[in-house]
Design a protein around this nucleic acid. Structure first.
Length: 506
RNA sequence: CGGGGCGUAGCUUAGCUUGGUAGAGCGCGUGGUUUGGGACCACGAGGUCGCAGGUUCGAAUCCUGUCGCCCCGACCA
């Protein structure tokens, strides 16, 4: 690679956003495509980010009264069939296991031992968990059941993209059963709130909470809630969903209980989930043309020490000095947790090493060389500033300064993302402006364009379909936090109860 | 699953039209020179050209099939 290049990632975001995204993943060494179509290998740095997500979310689930459990990977075909809409929604993308043995014939391994009933590799677990709940629940005293599972699921996708849409992906799925409709609804809303907080406070991603329209609803759900984020190419991405399932799955799976009045009633259930897609969302929200940029709270490590060991005569002194500082920083608390520090003494060129960490998005890089040793200082670089911009920090100020910067970065990243979203969210009052907003100037090679549009809609699926066909734009959600403001549908002139959020989506 | 493009070393690729059994850059290894920065020099390792057939004395190159990847649609967290 030439040292003349300005940025580590080529092409840059403006030139080719999808390609830039792939390059960031590669440069940061997060994951790679595997030999199995649509399935990815998550590498240590990528996995560490997912682990952070898991750890924090898991704590939030526990704090809201949930417990973890685990259900089977395989679902009997007949289970899936129990809920009509659900089958229809997932049938096309199910991986199916039909055999349980391999035999050698003519030197080739061939499937043998056909199963009497094929097994579906779970695309989601409502049905098999429903069957368990049907066994577990007899009385209103057994309710609520508040369970989460961390698992992998498989949806046979036609166009996979690392983290955003893979055939196998990792997620958590919460499944709860309640005595009353209201309780289940409250749970649905509560968990959406957990997702919103997590996205905002940890990933530094502002999201819009809302409800899906009927056409975007989860198959089998009564109501689907979601959080929608805007990434840097101004497209929307669904970052999490929470479903109010009513009694649909309870009826399909026979989840019944005897009520306080002694009557046999169906339970009210919910399900909610976020997936490794969050990692993709994180990448597309914050990264720049030098690679990944991680919010300090989600970064596997907050700081990397890069001792400069070029002069033989003071090598051991620098090392010792750096190590002492690193260790003291490791004992420093930021937001109630010890700071995680990497110490990179690998014998590779200093420039290369530095760039590696830039591309990995670590929040703070600290260089320590002979000169710093003399001055009793370190040289500090932060990932949210140009890569050459350095700051000398005296060692007695280091822990405090690092904490300050981490807090600043966490807030700054959220603020930047909010400003970006705000700048590209438009209130649109008529059809022409709407079409203009979502039409690129260059149709051959569309530039980054559009964003979020808030516009009135008459509630008709036909309009949604028309817009989707014309512009590939869909209603992302009916936002919760928008003050209801009656108006006229910009497409039909018919009455509208309020504005909805339109965007092109991942 | 429809339309288009592409598969040559870990990565990016030249060669293919006009068949004569592979070349480069980056990366990697060793040695040296450098050193607050993705440095330089030398030497070296690494490819049966996606796979399977066919045509031919001879195929990376031509033909057929197949698999995979990318882009555009339809579908989706």
């Amino acid at each position: 690679m030439s040292q003349k290049e300005e940025n580590a990632i080529s092409p840059c975001r403006e030139e080719d956003f999808p390609e830039w995204y792939q390059q960031v993943i590669r440069a940061a060494d997060l994951a790679e495509n595997s030999e199995v179509r649509g399935c990815m290998v998550i590498k240590p740095w990528g996995w560490a980010i997912w682990e952070r997500i898991q750890l924090i979310l898991d704590g939030m689930f526990k704090a809201t009264g949930h417990r973890n459990a685990y259900f089977p990977l395989f679902i009997p075909l007949s289970y899936l069939q129990k809920e009509a809409e659900h089958v229809e929604g997932f049938a096309k993308e199910c991986a199916v296991v039909t055999h349980h043995r391999l035999e050698v014939r003519d030197g080739k391994l061939v499937p043998a031992g056909e199963l009497s009933e094929p097994l579906v590799v779970r695309p989601t677990s409502e049905t098999i968990i429903g069957a368990a709940y049907a066994r577990w629940i007899n009385s209103y005293r057994d309710l609520p059941i508040l369970i989460n599972q961390w698992a992998n699921v498989v949806r046979w996708e036609m166009r996979p993209r690392l983290f955003l849409r893979t055939a196998e992906f990792l997620w958590q799925e919460g499944h709860t059963a309640h005595e009353t409709e209201q309780e289940a609804w409250e749970e649905t809303v509560r968990m959406l709130g957990v997702y919103e907080r997590f996205a905002r406070d940890y990933l530094a991603i502002p999201v819009i909470k809302g409800e899906k329209t009927e056409s975007e609803r989860f198959p089998g759900a009564v109501r689907t809630l979601c959080i929608e984020a805007m990434v840097q190419d101004r497209k929307a991405i669904q970052a999490g969903t929470s479903h109010f399932l009513g009694q649909n799955f309870a009826k399909a799976s026979g989840i019944r209980f005897q009520s306080r009045e002694g009557k046999l009633e169906y339970a009210w259930t919910t399900s909610w989930g976020v997936s490794t897609r969050l990692v993709g969302t994180l990448i597309m929200t914050h990264s720049d043309d030098d690679g990944l940029v991680l919010p300090p709270r989600i970064s596997p490590s907050q700081v990397v020490f890069l001792p400069i060991l070029t002069k033989e005569n003071c090598r051991s002194q620098v090392l010792e000095y750096a190590e002492r500082l690193a260790n003291s920083l490791r004992e420093t608390y930021w937001e109630g947790q010890k700071i995680s520090v990497e110490f990179d003494t690998r014998d590779i060129g200093g420039g290369n090493k530095n760039w590696e960490w830039i591309k990995k998005g670590i929040p703070i890089r600290i260089e320590i060389g002979p000169r710093d040793l003399e001055n009793l200082s370190v040289t500090l670089y932060r990932r949210d500033r140009p890569h050459r911009k350095k700051e000398a920090v005296l060692i007695q100020n280091l822990p405090q300064r690092v904490c300050e910067i981490l807090s600043e970065m966490q807030q700054g990243m959220l603020q930047r993302a909010q400003e970006f979203r705000c700048k590209h969210t438009h209130i649109i009052e008529n059809k022409k402006d709407f079409y203009d907003f979502f039409t690129p100037l260059n149709s051959e090679k569309p530039e980054i364009h559009g964003g979020f549009a808030l516009a009135h809609w008459n509630g008709s699926v036909n309009v949604e379909t028309q817009i989707k066909n014309d512009l590939k734009v869909t209603i992302r959600c009916i936002p919760f936090d928008l003050i209801p403001e009656p108006g006229k549908c910009i497409f039909t002139g018919e009455p509208s109860r309020g504005r909805v959020l339109w965007a092109k989506a991942y």
